[in-house]
Amino acid sequence: MSVDIDITGLRPEQIAVVASPLAELGMALHALSEPGHHPGLQGWATTVTAGLDSHLADRMSEADFLWRTTYSDLFLPYAGIPGRCTLPGAGLAEDLDLLDKLSDEQFVDAALEFTCALPYSVPGPAALADAEARRRALELAAARGPQQLRFTERLLADPPRTRAWLRQFLEDCDAAFFADTWSRLRHQLAADARHKTDLLRRKGLAEALASVSSAVTLDEAGARIVVDKLGSGRSATMDGGLLLVPTSLGRPHLMVLHRYGWQPVLHYPVSHPEPAAPPSVEQLTLRLAALSHPTRMRMCRSLARSAFTTGELAQIHGMTAPEISRHLSALKKAGLLTTRRRGRYVLHQLDVAAVARLGSDFLEGLLR
């Protein structure tokens, strides 16, 4: 199975690789609601969730089906703008302005994607205009629970009010946590977009797509992009363009917007540095032996929380400095400590990432 994009007649200048703050906010909401999909983001998700205002958290659950079980095309609104060549905005406000430019029919149909009630990659009736499509959407929303039904009823009864609610919610998420997250991610995403654009210019579309994912290929004729997925769909650039939108928080999801009448979009995860090489058996043995000593386990509990000098650890654990030094030496030899100098003092701290690779249960026990 695959999702295919017919790019017959597509010119190089009609292909754009651009980061989108709204798309990344959508992925942030997805990662917060489905942390199991993103084990590498658990620390970030825990920090954000702990700092959420209870009112915002409640609102987040009101429509989480827009980003939890499905990823709504509303987070890629530029694809729906007439002309099929609009680019994402430079900031979240600009992306939200593009969301406001979608017609009520486009907004409602994209928001109702979670019900699977409406045609997607082929033309079909709009829920606002067709009584049977509206009835079917409500029926399937009800099957998914009262929360989804309430949202769908509100959406169909008063689209402008629901649109205003969603925009305000997204702006509040930006103020609460996303602005800070975006400020850290946007440079990485921009760099990836520049790299893909350079590949397009120097080596062509096939090379650029290969750098996106091994699951994305260009056929021999150069007329069709094939995305290997457990699902089927088709789209075409026709007289429009093709967008490639990188995401950091979305890894490992590779998504294709192939809604009928919209500009096709590949929403792909940026590559990450290769993980560290696994330790040798000898190094693994050293680490397990170092952590098996009860005194060193107690020291690790302190060192996981903060950095300490040898003298401070001696005082905390009621031991002599030479005894502490021997235990620190064993932990350092096993590659479990980081050290840094502050004036005449040497500070030791546990390498939490190295310990986490040995086992989450042990790390949780240290941090409990």
Rank of each mutant, 00 (worst) to 15 (best):
F308N: 04
E282D: 10
E323V: 08
L313W: 08
L291Q: 02
S271R: 14
T320P: 10
P273K: 05
Q263G: 03
R259W: 13
L331P: 11
G311F: 10
W262C: 10
L337T: 02
L284R: 14
T295E: 10
R296E: 11
M299R: 00
P264N: 00
H258S: 00
R259G: 10
R251G: 13
H267E: 06
A314W: 07
S302I: 04
M255D: 09
H272V: 04
P246F: 04
L331F: 06
L313V: 04
G250A: 09
L336A: 08
V245R: 02
S292M: 13
H267F: 14
P252F: 07
V245C: 10
I324H: 00
V270T: 08
V265Q: 04
I316Y: 07
I324E: 00
V270D: 07
S280T: 14
Q263H: 05
T309N: 00
E312M: 00
A277Q: 14
V256K: 02
A276K: 13
T320M: 02
R326N: 12
A330R: 13
A314Q: 05
M255F: 06
Q283L: 11
A321M: 15
G318F: 03
I324L: 03
A330M: 14
H258E: 04
K333Y: 08
S292L: 14
A314L: 01
P279E: 05
Y268C: 03
L257A: 06
Q315E: 10
R296C: 09
S248V: 11
L336W: 01
R287E: 03
H317L: 15
A334K: 06
L336I: 10
A290S: 09
G335C: 05
R287K: 15
L249E: 05
G311W: 08
P275F: 07
P278M: 12
T320I: 03
V270P: 10
I316Q: 08
R296Q: 07
L284D: 12
L313K: 02
Q283I: 07
R298A: 14
G335S: 07
T310D: 06
P294D: 03
R287M: 04
S292C: 11
L313Q: 06
H327Q: 07
S302R: 12
I316P: 02
A289N: 15
P294E: 05
S248F: 11
S302C: 13
A277V: 13
L244I: 00
L313R: 03
H272Q: 12
H327L: 04
P275N: 08
E312W: 02
P252R: 07
S325H: 12
